[in-house]
């Protein structure tokens, strides 16, 4: 019991909160960017543009079927080869955006497919342009259908940031490891508290999202 009290001293908790902060901001940036990327790729695939849709579909299928860990390694070691300095933060954000963007594009594609084609035709015959019909008629319905899937994807994105410990991203799990590697009797308290922290963040996000969904959709 005493180890728990010592392990949860303010200094340690502050250090963990710094890690949690990195987890959260990497997640938020990745969520926003991957949503945009997923939307674009999903639309491209849905629209069946010659060659382009097939090419995007092929790349998305490849990325979707690879472990995220591997993609993190690719961005971390690969980006500098392209002449970019990749610090762990940028490398993990890029990896998360690419991976989750591919997962989201699949959700978006099937979401749009689930909207009856009559909706698009009706909107076009009422004088809307393709873009207007897409934005005002088809997408709102599609997004309503795919919201649960997208949200659970966001929750897994937050959990997946923990994999970036392997490239020394100073996020929650890495900070916990730093603490217990300096005093190994803190091993159990540390895992307990980070499990709770991850749980609170993910649980709150999914509950809040459910709430929003019920209220507005």
């Amino acid at each position: 019991m005493e180890t728990f009290i010592h392990a949860y001293s303010w200094i340690d908790i502050r250090f963990l909160l710094q890690g949690l902060w990195v987890t959260i901001y990497v997640s938020v940036i990745s969520i926003i960017l991957s949503f945009i990327l997923g939307l674009i790729c999903g639309l491209v695939r849905y629209m069946k543009i010659k060659y382009l849709s097939a090419a995007v579909g092929f790349v998305v299928d490849i990325i979707r079927n690879l472990p995220l860990l591997l993609i993190i390694f690719f961005t971390y070691f690969g980006l500098p080869k392209l002449g970019l300095i990749a610090n762990p933060t940028i490398a993990s954000i890029v990896a998360l955006v690419v991976f989750e963007g591919a997962m989201l594009s699949e959700i978006v594609r099937s979401g749009i497919n689930s909207v009856p084609t009559g909706q698009m035709e009706g909107a076009r015959s009422n004088g809307m342009t393709y873009v207007q019909a897409m934005i005002h008629v088809v997408l709102p319905q599609a997004i309503r259908n795919m919201v649960p899937a997208i949200l659970s994807q966001f929750v897994s994105l937050i959990k997946d940031t923990s994999l970036a410990t392997i490239i020394v991203l100073p996020e929650l799990l890495y900070h916990a490891q730093i603490i217990y590697s300096q005093n190994t009797s803190y091993l159990i308290p540390m895992y307990l508290i980070i499990a709770v922290m991850y749980f609170i963040v993910c649980f709150c996000l999914s509950k809040y999202a459910n709430h929003l969904q019920k209220k507005y959709l």
Partner: peptide, 8 residues
């Protein structure tokens, strides 16, 4: 991956 993990 690192010494902390190995020692744990």
């Amino acid at each position: 991956g690192d010494y902390g993990q190995a020692f744990s």
